[in-house]
Design a protein around this nucleic acid. Structure first.
Lengths: 329, 329
DNA sequence: CTGAAAGCGCTTACAG
DNA sequence: CTGAAAGCGCTTACAG
């Protein structure tokens, strides 16, 4: 591997001049410029990013801490973030932590010691302290810390989403709606559940719920429990699309038809939700917009220094095939 | 951010001693050791990885170039690789390139200039030159370069998989089997298709095929084409599970029942294939074993210096609900 | 415009 | 056992 000194020697100039040519950081005589350029290509020189980063204290890298790479919501988000970052000349360092707190903690430390220029983390409330203490910009997706502040919080109106889901099932004629709520230590899950609760209270509807992790193993297990606890359920609100899909799987196996016998609604509107059959009715989150917002804040944090500014995006209902208004007629 | 000098000053020792204590790289008097340890915790000192990497020329990082983060085969692989690497004290830098050659090229360059300790890349034959020239270990997943060599190739017996798929559909009584083959510039796709072709030839069966990218958009589009070109198709071999799922989607929409009217088989056996309804019959790849092998080679490349050693894993048929032997009775 | 020098924050021979 | 020094490969004041 050629270094900047090799190039300088070959071109008959100083390393400083080579650096200036590469970075366009000062004027260099056309003659020397050409010599340098030729030397660079002759030696296949690629500047060492590590050295550059050490000096600049910026690696042009943003860490995205992804709670689980198995969850399509996060992989879609990762893809958006990746593209948006690239457009602004940054790269994304994806840190998959699979819901493991130690993995997440070490990811944060790693990002800091790697001179990352920012961190995008997602709904894990237990690392509030570490995240709020970072000297680099931090944006939290899908969550809101109670006391500690980071640069910005980006999330959707989950509460309204929960309400919309309950309202929709109610309108579709469901009499016994069970809410499969997500892990209640998570902001996303709490807010969605609260929306359901309030809709029920406002309309004098019985409340029923079971808690469930945001993955398909949990979803399948919970469905068995659901069916034995509530044999007369006719409407299910799933905490996310993956759980909805796994609920459907069990219902289908038991020959329970959807939406005829039980209506089902998910949350997130990942690509997969319209790929499966029947297509899933769900609450849409604007993943693209949220991801782009996160990047724009990290790359240009203006005055938002750990003030905890909130950006709340709207959700909306996508009616597909697992619910049915016509049942009412 | 405290530096090693701050810690040294506070502890009344030299930076070298602090380094020795941190890394256990030489004996230090118990007394100084304790002073150093106290100073480290008082200053919340975290060593700067960038400086360490610059000196050591190793970042304890392995790059995984992921063709598309939207494909669950790769995300499952990423998860395995991530865990395996962690066990050996390495971290994974995930580079999502979404099938973009420029993104892939810049990922490789970035990894090299970031002093990565190895690269795991996947079925993209166009960057053979760049990959084989790397001074760090390179392992190729799911592919085999024709002339250029890297440290190792890890793949499955796709040819046999293609044969097994054709044989299975044949045994299930299909008379008109159409192979939705993957992009033929890819090794995985070629070999699977060749297995199908050879099975057909050996058994005097007509061959029919359509090419299709490995993603669901392509899968849905191709199914329309398939149905109009081959209205009497009764068996479909999909190039991977995601495409199989999207094929199913269109069939279902058209009220074509699976497996009664058309039988369908996928490839990969991603988690999702058993989550959907009906569960997908598919060819299983041992993702866990392949990923672990890749990591063990990168982390301990022994004598395999770009010799192109091949590790070929077996595949096997997983019969589920989209094919049916009983039709024969 | 350009080079010599200093420095980013570590680690490891080299002396002692 | 321990410290001063040199160096990893860059970049940017600072002179000239």
């Amino acid at each position: 591997m050629a270094s900047i000194r090799d190039v300088a020697k070959l071109a008959g100039v100083s390393p400083a001049t080579v650096s200036r040519v590469m970075n366009g950081t000062a004027n260099v005589t056309e003659e020397k410029r050409e010599k340098v350029l030729r030397a660079i290509s002759e030696t296949d020189f690629v500047p060492n990013e590590v050295a550059r980063t050490l000096f600049k204290k910026s690696s042009k890298t943003i860490g995205f801490i992804i709670p689980s790479i198995q969850n399509p919501y996060f992989t879609q988000m990762a893809d958006v973030i990746d593209r948006a970052a690239k457009e602004l000349g940054f790269r994304i360092l994806l840190c998959n932590v699979e819901h493991d707190l130690d993995r997440e903690r070490s990811a944060i430390q790693m990002l800091i010691s790697a001179n990352a220029d920012g961190i995008i983390a997602s709904n894990n409330s237990e690392l509030q302290h570490e995240l709020s203490q970072c000297e680099i910009p931090v944006v939290i997706l899908d969550s809101l810390f109670r006391t500690k502040d980071v640069n910005a919080y980006i999330y959707c109106n989950y509460y309204q989403g929960g309400m919309m889901a309950a309202e929709h099932l109610h309108k579709c004629g469901c009499r016994k709606i069970v809410c499969i709520k997500g892990p209640q230590q998570l902001f996303t899950a709490q807010a969605r559940y609260q929306g359901y609760v309030d809709f029920c209270e406002d309309n004098g509807i019985e409340q029923h719920s079971i808690e469930c992790d945001y993955d398909f193993h949990a979803g399948m297990a919970v469905t068995e429990e659901l069916l034995s606890s509530y044999p007369d359920v006719d409407g299910i609100i799933a905490c996310n699309d993956i759980v909805a899909i796994s609920i459907y799987k069990i219902l289908h196996k038991r020959n329970i038809s959807v939406p005829e016998q039980i209506q089902l609604i998910g949350f997130d509107d990942v690509h997969l939700s319209s790929l499966i059959s029947p297509e899933l009715t769900t609450i849409h989150q604007p993943i693209e917009e949220m991801g782009r917002k996160a990047i724009s804040i990290i790359c240009d944090p203006e005055g938002l220094e750990k003030r905890g500014k909130q950006f709340v995006f709207p959700v909306h209902l996508i009616e597909r095939e697992t619910t049915c208004m016509k049942k009412l007629l």
